[in-house]
Computed example of a mutant assay.
Amino acid sequence: DINNFSFVNDNYGYDAGDSMLNDFSSILNSMKKVIKGSRINSDLFLLMISGKDKNDIMSSVNYISEKFYNMQKQKYRSNNFTVASGIYYICEKGEDVAYAIDNADLARKNIKSHKELNVCIYNEDFRIRRTREKSIITKLQNAINERQIELFLQPKFSMNSRKVIGAEALARWRNPDGTYKLPFEFIDVLERAGYIVELDFYIYEESLKCIKRWQRDNKKVVPISVNFSRKNNINPEFTQKVLNLAEKYSIDNKYIEFEITESAFAENTLAMLSNMNTLRQHGFKVDIDDFGIGYSSLSFLLNSPIDTVKVDKVFVDGIEKSNYHREFIKQMCMLINTTKKEIIFEGVETENQADFLCKCGFDIAQGWLFDKAIRVDDFEKKYIYI
């Protein structure tokens, strides 16, 4: 398929999109090695290419990509219109055609999660992974209904006073044997499949229930920050659903913060900023997560409706590596301070790291030096009901 094809339709019109499809078709029609070719839908094409060996077929695929890229380069100054190709080699006569097409499509879809690739060759791991992903997706709703998805809280600390000043909400999926699936085992799967929206709001509502309980019992209430995926953040109905749930539990909005990863700003920035502005207007705080490893700049921080910057663990790890790393993180955070944003350091694991950050004038952090993410009842016993 053609990467960024929807950008042409949205910004140049459908006639321009049709012209691009015709360009691609003209390349295929000019190639004798393309035995069969058809457009399945939109910008998705299916080809059967002959070759004396695998390298010969790969050369044909690369030729198509390069030829198409050069054609579009003449029409568009900003040319990001590359071709993503999934390849399955048919090595024996009598192979099932539907199976071969499905395998090529699995290879193509693998490119979508590895944007540095333009060509991917099928291997059996793709099918194994899809089977596992289907299992996770199928089990999600039941896991929520049966409360197998649990809210864990990782405390945020003042490094100077060593007192809890907040918490981050995290999802853990309990297995039948009592062990837990960690986020990397299911979050990305749900994100790709579009089911992350349901999980995000489940964790948000569980967080609201915690705050409601602490208020009811006249206990110390600490803010909880909740992670929301890009799919939620660009949804025009997102903020209204957030507000409706907060109203349902009669929560003071100052006790909820929304964490948005830095990489989420790569697409639909205007929609994202609109939602963030709306949240802040209603008293919520907005945090940018994993700062420093993605797309942000100082000018972005100056002009964006953000309250808190969470500095990624990769910078904290550098504190104990060299003077260069220490000076870098110090200067970076001093620049962030000029934007009047609060700073939280992620992944603080040693006293040396905490001491350095405190001496630089910073205070708030989370990490295993203080506590890991723990079950809600354990969090309440240690930090709330005391």
Rank of each mutant, 00 (worst) to 15 (best):
F5H: 05
I234T: 08
Y180K: 09
K341C: 01
E185N: 15
P176E: 14
R162A: 04
N253S: 12
K248W: 01
Y122A: 09
R77T: 14
E257P: 11
F45T: 00
V226L: 06
F184M: 15
V226G: 07
K382S: 10
I49F: 04
S38L: 06
F362N: 06
D287T: 02
K219G: 03
E257C: 14
K75R: 12
G292H: 07
Q74F: 06
Y122D: 12
D363H: 07
N118Y: 15
N123S: 12
K254Q: 15
F228Y: 08
T339K: 05
A266G: 13
D355S: 11
Q215T: 04
L140Q: 05
G347Y: 03
K341P: 00
D125H: 11
R326P: 13
N11I: 04
D43Y: 02
G194T: 04
N323L: 15
F291D: 07
L270H: 07
I364N: 09
K359L: 07
I165E: 10
D200E: 04
W173I: 11
L369G: 00
I344D: 03
K381R: 14
E327Q: 15
N323M: 12
A264Q: 12
N233W: 02
D371Y: 01
V309N: 01
I149S: 10
E342H: 02
P155N: 06
I121V: 13
N11Y: 06
F68C: 11
H114S: 11
Q74E: 15
K248H: 05
N253M: 08
Y202D: 01
D53P: 15
N118K: 08
R172K: 13
T138E: 13
V34T: 10
L243Q: 01
E267D: 12
G294L: 13
D23Q: 05
D177M: 00
K330Q: 15
N4A: 11
R130E: 05
S304P: 14
P305Y: 05
A98F: 05
K52R: 13
D96K: 08
R375K: 12
A167I: 08
Q154S: 11
G294F: 09
H114K: 15
V8C: 02
N232D: 10
L190C: 06
T338P: 14
I101A: 08
